[in-house]
Amino acid sequence: MIGASLGAAAYERAPEISRILAGAGPVEDTRRARLSAKADAILTLSGIGISFGGVTALSDVDLEVKSGEIRAVIGPNGAGKSSLINIISGLYHANHGTIAIDGQPFARVPANRLARLGVARTFQNLALFGGLSVRDNIASGRVHTRHTSFVEHIAGLPRARREDAVIAEKTDQIVVFLHLEAVADRLVATLPYGLQKRVELARALVAEPKILLLDEPMAGMTATEKAEMAGFVRAARDRHGVTIILIEHDIGVVMGLSDRVAVLDYGRKIADGTPAEVRADPAVIRAYIGTAEGEASDELL
């Protein structure tokens, strides 16, 4: 069919494609060297497998994430990227394997303790609280630091007021950091899509997590919005030192932004390394061109 012939054509142009991939953006080598020298893994997945009703979404996936790096996970549609992030955040429970977050091993990550473990995430499809203002949405990202009861809040006791003040200050900082001042008091549901994505990033960042999971943060954005978002993600790492795990469809963005890239295909990890290594890996080119031909070539060209 059309897709297949397109795929075959793209396969013949493989060298050209890798040249395009290579041009996606330079990452300073010094920073990467510094990172690998500081080889403490903040998140380790070993032998992760999960299946849904007999369909295997992930099998035997290992992933090691070093503190302070931007780690991308890419792969064609249905490769298991979102399953992986949902397992790390405890929304799915893996059938096999263990996850170690900052040295603590888990067979099942407790989702309700995730924030206190120092992990924050965004969602592929927006998961904001439509009935709250932008500021309140962002402030909710620090809810795990609260210790006051409803009685203290109703009575307006000093402890509750202090807690509110601390959170308001952190929220204001993030609002400024992500340039959301102009819309801070608007209901989040009234914002355009790109801004809502940014509010979700803000809600995750205000928690001051050690690990930040971004599930397709640039999906559905315009090129300008993507570049802006990439800038914010990089700035978040550089300024707050947060470790970032990034799932993204846009390969150009991923290669320019990340320190290391893992590639999933049909639930297996087929490549792992620096953007340059992954780019040159024939298995990756085959996976992208052989399975998701239409989409992959759209993105590449």
């Binding site: 955040s89 405890g90 929304l91 989702a111 309700n112 303790r113 995730l114 924030a115 206190r116 924050a120 995430r121 969602f123 998961a127 904001l128 609280f129 439509g130 009935g131 709250l132 909710s140 990202g141 809810v143 795990h144 809600r203 928690a207």
Partner: peptide, 12 residues
């Protein structure tokens, strides 16, 4: 009310 999953993940 608005998003129970997101609420759980951020620590509500």
């Amino acid at each position: 009310r608005d998003n129970e999953t997101a609420a759980r993940v951020i620590g509500v």
